[in-house]
Design a protein around this nucleic acid. Structure first.
Lengths: 217, 217
DNA sequence: GAGGCTCCGTGATATCTTCTAACGGAAATT
DNA sequence: AATTTCCGTTAGAAGATATCACGGAGCCTC
C-alpha cells in the first residue's frame, strides 16, 4: 500500500505486482496456513507461470519474511491506533484479541512455531519495540505506582527491550505479563486446545485480563 | 517401547522398524523442526529406499500424528512421575519447563502452530486430560480454599475438561492459569522472542510461577 | 518338511514443489 | 530511433510425497 507513487513507471508496476503476489499469499495463508504457501499456486492463480515470481521475490523464504514483516506492521498499527486515543491496557488487550481472531494464521506467523532457518531482521525488532512502547505507555499511565518486586528490579536493570522508554519497574513487569499471559491464552485458543473443554475462551481471556488490571477474576 | 513382545515375529519386527523410523524422525525434528521432516531422508539414512516406509506409515501425516501422540505421552509421563511423589504446582512447573527446554521442537509439536488439516484423535484428548488431572490434584492439595470468582464459577459449571475430577472451582481456575501463563512464557522463550531483550527468561518464568502460587513476584 | 500364503523391499512412475538458466520480446531510457 | 534494461516464457535439475506392480524372503499351515 505504501509508496505506490514511485518514481519510474517500472518501479510502480513492480510494486503493484509485488502487492498482488502478497495479496494472493495472504489468501492462501488464511485458507491453509503458512506451511501450505506455494509460489507455484500463486503464479497459477495470477495467470503467469512459475518462475515469473522470482523476479519479485528471491524465493519462498523472502516472501514469507516479508509477510511476517507486514503482519508485525499490521499489529503495531492496530495497537498504536488505539494507544494514541489514550486506550488503557484493557482496551489494548481487546485490540490484540480482535486482531488475532480476525486472522489466526497471521497471528501464528508472528507468534507461532518459528521457521527453522529463519532469523528476524532488525526491522522486526524495531516494530516489536514499537508495540512494547505503546504497552509501556499505557501501563505507566494506568498504574503509575506498582509495588516493587525482585523481578521488576531485574527488569529495571535489564531494560534494553524498552528502548529508552521511561516506564517505572512496575510497568515493565506489567507490560511483560500482559504480553505473555494474553499470548498464552490466545495461542492456545487459536490452536484449538480449548475446543471440547466446555468453558468459554472469551471469559478466560477476560479473567486473565481482569487479573492483570487488578480486578476480580 | 510398549508392546515390544508381540505375538508373532512378524509383528515384533514390524514394531521394531516402526520404532526405528520414529527415532530417526525425532532426530530430524530436533535438528530442523517438524516442517523439515522427510520420509525420503529417513529412508536414506536407514539404508532403504523411499516407498519401503509406506509399509509402516500410511504417509507423512500419519507419522507426524504418531509423533505428536508420543510427545503428549512423554509430557504426561514426566508430569505424572512428579505428581505421584506429591509434587506441588511449583515442582510441576519446573518439570514442564525442563521437559520443554530439553527439546523445544517437541514442545512446539504439541503446542505450536497447528497443522492445517490435522485434527487431534480422541487418544490425544485423553492424554491431555491425564495431564490436567495431575495439575488439578496438585492445585487442590496445595491450595484447597481459593476465594471464589465469577470465572471460577463459570469453570465449575463447565468442567467437562476436568473429566470428573473433584477439584473445587478455585483449583480449576488455578490449573487453567498455570497452563496458559506458563505456556505463554515458555512458547515465547522457545520461539526466541526474548532473545536480545536483555532480561533472563528463567527469572520471568519464576516470577510468573511465584505469582501463581501466591508469593511475591 | 513341503507347499502356499503373507508381507516386505524394490524400481518405475506420476505429480507436486522450489529454484536456475537461457531465450525472446516489450517497454523505458537515451 | 537505437540501446539498454527488465519481464515472462520454456526447459530442466533436484527433491518431495505417494501409488503401483513385481520378485523374493520369511512364516504358517497342512
Amino acid at each position: 500500500m505504501a509508496k505506490s507513487d514511485a518514481a519510474t513507471p517500472r518501479e510502480r508496476y513492480r510494486a503493484q505486482v509485488r502487492a498482488e503476489i502478497k495479496q494472493h499469499a495472504w489468501e492462501q495463508i488464511a485458507t491453509a496456513g503458512a506451511s501450505a504457501l506455494s509460489l507455484n499456486a500463486i503464479a497459477r492463480r495470477m495467470g503467469v507461470s512459475g518462475p515469473a515470481l522470482y523476479r519479485y521475490f528471491a524465493g519462498r523464504d523472502e516472501l514469507i519474511t516479508e509477510l511476517i514483516g507486514d503482519a508485525y506492521r499490521s499489529l503495531a498499527d492496530a495497537v498504536h491506533a488505539a494507544a494514541v486515543t489514550g486506550a488503557d491496557p484493557a482496551a489494548l488487550a481487546h485490540v490484540l484479541r480482535d486482531w488475532a481472531l480476525a486472522d489466526p494464521h497471521r497471528y501464528f506467523l508472528i507468534y507461532g512455531t518459528p521457521v527453522p532457518g529463519y532469523h528476524a531482521p532488525d526491522e522486526i525488532t524495531g516494530i516489536s519495540q514499537e508495540i512494547m512502547a505503546d504497552l509501556l505507555t499505557a501501563w505507566t499511565a494506568y498504574e503509575p505506582d506498582v509495588p516493587a518486586s525482585p523481578f521488576a528490579a531485574h527488569l529495571a536493570d535489564h531494560r534494553d527491550w524498552a528502548g529508552g522508554h521511561p516506564a517505572p519497574p512496575g510497568a515493565l513487569r506489567r507490560a511483560l505479563a500482559f504480553w505473555t499471559r494474553l499470548h498464552g491464552v490466545l495461542s492456545l485458543e487459536l490452536a484449538g486446545h480449548f475446543t471440547g473443554m466446555g468453558f468459554d475462551p472469551a471469559l478466560l481471556f477476560r479473567a486473565e485480563l481482569d487479573d492483570l488490571v487488578g480486578r476480580e477474576d
